[in-house]
Design a binder for these strands. Sequence first.
DNA 1: CTACTTGTTGGTAT
DNA 2: AATACCAACAAGTA
Length: 279
Amino acid sequence: MPELPEVETVRRGLTQLVEGSTIKTVDVLYAKMINLPPDDFKEALRGKRIEKIDRRGKYLFIRLSGHLTIVSHLRMEGKYDVEPEGSPIDKHTHIIFHLTDGRQLRYNDTRKFGRMNLVDTGTEMQVAGLKTIGPEPTEKDLTVEYMKRIFAKSRKVIKPFLLDQSNIAGLGNIYADEVLWLSKINPKQPVNTISLAKIKVLRKNIIDELARAIAGHGTTVHSYSTAYGEAGQFQNHLNVYGREGEPCPRCGTKIVKIKLAQRGTHFCPKCQRLRGVKK
DNA sequence: CTACTTGTTGGTAT
DNA sequence: AATACCAACAAGTA
């Protein structure tokens, strides 16, 4: 399940592999994946050069000649693979970009949740999900002032608040649990009850954890791999996610798993006490 | 067969 | 208005 670090890893892999390549033709094997009628999608992409790959949150922007951008969201299990012509088509391959050099860029997605929107470059922020996207989790964009402001004005509990991409871009279920553990904050803590000191700790952990995950090429929880086919390394670093019943790496207490906002939520009941609110 | 998982949107209920 | 909850999407696993 790609979160920001995995998407960034894919961006880097695609940049190395297909930046500068030219699309010859496109096959659409699953039409619901795209925002245009397949014939329009194919026709618009014919002969376009892949100029650059950008990223915003979990969204990839494939910049093409002709002032076009493919906005690609991998959702749960989307992947890009580069294959030579003639290599067998996987049953979960949904879009094939035939390149003029004979290689193929293939979009694979077991659950068909991923989406591609072909839009005019400059209008990509009008794609659903990007209109309201929050700041990137970086030192520069995710300021203390911003965090302080959004935390003060909401009574939502922190875990679903972190998953809401309009607050901060890029956190998914794994890293949300991880940064809360790192910051010793209970997933059910209402955000307006979190002290400024804790907000600063959380901010630093979000920025640092995602940077570390990018450095480790993302995480492998299900079937994630980079565009090179190499597995991510980061799963070795997860402290609470997927570790229900195992000892907390900090205090040894058993990690608990609960359901919060319909999502599996892992935390240490001792390190991450709920502060000053009744349950 | 059921329940559960994931990210995101969109609708309804409180 | 803000929040909470649910369904939908799709397919795999237990």
